[in-house]
């Protein structure tokens, strides 16, 4: 049995240069735990939405059935899932060491993600133009905050993709780039997971 020093004041939980660690595993698990806490943020927003989703909280303004269209939401669902699939296929290209295939998959995911966000902002802008902005009622505040929080996550993911499109040709598939690409895959997939919940709860049950 190998000798193990007793834990003490000088014990280090993690050492970047230690051969026994897998940097990629440590980074992806850490990012996964961040995502679970991010999911709790969305859980709080869903709880607020559930509470405010009554005609009384609409204060005379529109309720869910008057502002959401399940068919339009379905197209958005297909777009975001296609974007996630494209990014996932990019990581398959990465597995094969194919830089151009990886970058192509990321670019397609980026374009589809931009289309998804554009759809969402168009809906919100139309509502606001009709006088139904987020300050119109408690219900609309919850609706706007839920949709905008998701959109902000998407925009951050898109910016991250742009950074990776620079880092892949510059550094190649080194340990850090691979860990970042894997974390971004989880993050991008997480947006589709949240959207499925938004679509089911807001666009379908509310319709």
């Amino acid at each position: 049995m190998a000798h193990q020093a007793a834990p003490g004041a000088n014990t280090r939980l993690f050492h970047p240069g230690y051969e026994g660690h897998s940097q990629i595993s440590a980074r992806t698990l850490g990012f996964w735990l961040y995502m679970l806490s991010d999911a709790l943020l969305f859980t709080a927003l869903f709880a607020a939405y559930a509470v405010l989703d009554t005609p009384m909280n609409a204060a005379g303004g529109p309720i869910a059935s008057q502002i959401v269209n399940p068919v339009e939401g379905f197209w958005q669902t297909i777009i975001i899932l296609a974007s996630v699939t494209s990014y996932s296929l990019a990581t398959v290209a990465m597995k094969n060491g194919n830089r151009s295939g990886t970058m192509l998959g990321i670019v397609v995911a980026l374009v589809l993600g931009a289309a998804f966000v554009a759809f969402g902002f168009n809906d919100l802008a139309s509502l606001a133009a009709q006088g139904n902005g987020m300050d119109r009622s408690g219900y609309l505040s919850a609706y706007f905050v839920l949709i905008l929080t998701h959109a902000l996550h998407m925009i951050f993911g898109a910016l991250w993709m742009l950074v990776m499109l620079v880092q892949i040709p510059r550094y190649g598939f080194n340990e850090m780039v691979v860990a970042r690409l894997l974390n971004l895959r989880m993050f991008w997939q997480f947006q589709a997971t949240v959207w499925v919940c938004v679509y089911i709860y807001v666009y379908m049950i509310g319709a």
């Binding site: 051969e19 026994g20 897998s22 940097q23 990629i24 699939t85 296929l89 398959v92 060491g97």
Partner: peptide, 25 residues
């Protein structure tokens, strides 16, 4: 957790990706 890998592309989280699985998803 998986052990250390000199080739990052040999890491289990990289190797687990598969086109058929993602398309099925």
């Amino acid at each position: 957790m998986a052990g250390s890998h000199s080739d990052p592309l040999a890491h289990p989280e990289v190797r687990m990706g598969g086109a058929l699985r993602y398309i099925a998803g």
